[in-house]
Design a protein around this nucleic acid. Structure first.
Lengths: 135, 135
DNA sequence: CTATTAGTCTACTCGATTAGTAGGTTTATA
DNA sequence: TATAAACCTACTAATCGAGTAGACTAATAG
């Protein structure tokens, strides 16, 4: 399951993708329109900015807006950033790999199945982008 | 990510699938061979028995063994039993569905992507069975 | 140059979940 | 009747998820 945090992130990013032409959008506006707790949203947007996906401007007329083109940001990237691993096991994770103890990866049935799950999952999440969140 | 609990469950089930011809297997044997904390394993096997996957026998010569044919138990079933939902969002879950607030499922980009992820994931997990865990 | 607006940052809380452990009870077999 | 083994309830400690508090910094308008 995705955490609330990444679900909020996706909602906020979808909103920002819609308003992309309108210049900076206030955190408080996103918070109201998407019903996301204000302070929680602050943290989330900050993370997205630090990751280089969003950009912000302080003071009057400020707010958040896209730094990258939404079409260039994969869903998988956002999930990994906010929630961490996408795979069901550490030993099949590409970005958060950990060797599994007492299970030989060469002939571990579970490993094989979970690698297959990872592959089909990533096929979707690496091809879909934040542009797909626009309505 | 799968929990330790379901990972242990799969290891134990794999072991039991191998030993299927040998009659009842002791919890303590599985615990040793697969390096799973004994008391934790007890709980797990109990759940699997109550779910009708395993059967047990008490007293001398007792232990755990398969009630169903391993080839008839889908991986998805075990995950749902031990960990719960497989989907990334409650609103696309088949067995643990919950309507999502402030997001119209008719035109929600996130919903669509996550439904697609669910579909490809289940294609794997509903087709692979515990027989695939044998080595 | 100062008031206001708006994002930045650190740290805290609090409940739920995860990963176990303890210890007694029941049932089958020898 | 002794012993072997599973059964069952309840407890604990650590981590994580979800959110809050409050002070700080930077940009703009008058």
């Amino acid at each position: 399951m995705l955490t609330k945090k990444s679900q909020y992130a996706f909602k906020a990013l979808g909103y920002l993708a819609d308003k992309q032409k309108d210049g900076p959008v206030l955190i408080s506006e996103i918070s109201k329109k998407k019903r996301i707790p204000l302070k929680f949203l602050e943290n989330i947007l900050l993370e997205l900015r630090k990751a280089g996906i969003l950009e912000s401007k302080k003071g009057k007329g400020g707010g958040y807006f896209f730094k990258k083109d939404p079409a260039d940001v994969k869903m998988a990237t956002v999930i990994r950033l906010i929630d961490g691993p996408i795979s069901m096991l550490p030993c099949v994770s590409l970005y958060f790999y950990e060797r599994c103890k007492n299970c030989d990866e060469k002939h571990c049935g579970l490993h094989d199945v979970m690698r297959q799950v990872r592959d089909v999952t990533l096929e979707v999440l690496e091809s879909r982008t934040l542009a797909d969140l626009k309505d």
